[in-house]
Amino acid sequence: MDPSLAVEITGLRKVFGTFVAVDGLDLRIKKGEIYGLLGPNGAGKTTTIRMICGLMAPTSGEILVWGYRMPMERDALIRITGYMAQKFSLYEDLTVKENLEFYGRLYGIPRKELAERVSELLSFLTLEEFSGRLAGRLSGGMKQRLALGVALIHRPRLLILDEPTAGVDPPIRRMFWEYLRGLNKESVTILVTTHYMDEAENCDRIALVNRGRVVAEGTPRDLKRRVFGGDLVEVTVRGRGDPASALSFCRVIDRQVAGEGGPDCALGSAVKLRVLAQDAPREIPAMISALERAGFTVLSASPTYVTLEDVFISVVEGAGRVA
């Protein structure tokens, strides 16, 4: 076992009755990185997280977390791990402070030290003025911060967060990621799941999970390169017929009708294409001339920013080929 690895999973499977939730998943997470599990709802992310935490026994496969074999050695793991469940899982009839103190006591933090730690966390998460409020009366963003606070009470080295930003407004999500980056700078390893593609850009490395398998893995930049094997060009054209057929020499990833001119418009519809190019500056002129030869009016053509969503769609459509 490699001591630089925080999580090492081999051939993980979990079957519920006839439903295969996790289907031969492999994962290597390095100590000190922010690692994202990205995938749609039902991809098996939560089940994987629960097995990593020892909350569920795998049907088969091996899980080593910080060198501890799960779920057998979960007692040792719990000491160094902070966990935030997908659903808010603190006591709504306890106050913010009572929740933090309760968990602090369970970790055996001495009284005086605990008081310091609680006020430190309240200030870090800007929850001081709500410390006496019942957790059930907090807003979504505050609940999320409280849950992070409880996960951090014992200064864990590994932080496991299951969809921490689900259902929270984008500005609050960005703020939450500021906290995570801050913690990561203090060498906390973070494993986070999300189905927000934009959010995954914050991770050092990500695994795309679909139907209980890792279908692609790497840094966000790597993934985009590897998956697309080149640059993405966005071309907007107007005219009758299928512009994709004129571009048979390159790969069209996505196509959508743009602008007001609907399909019935006398001039034909404005269509926005996302096209994959080996080398954008060299191929864009060729694309334009091919389209014009086919009778289309090219309104614009430029290299574009690849989102993880593009990557995901591409990977899932061509599942198996990339993995």
């Binding site: 007692d75 719990i78 966990y83 469940a85 659903k87 808010f88 899982s89 603190l90 369970l106 970790y107």
Partner: peptide, 17 residues
């Protein structure tokens, strides 16, 4: 039912506790 059990057992609390 409320999901608090999941968080509780991720702490070093024992069954007897």
């Amino acid at each position: 039912e409320k999901g608090t059990f999941e968080q509780l057992i991720m702490s070093p609390v024992g069954r007897l506790d």
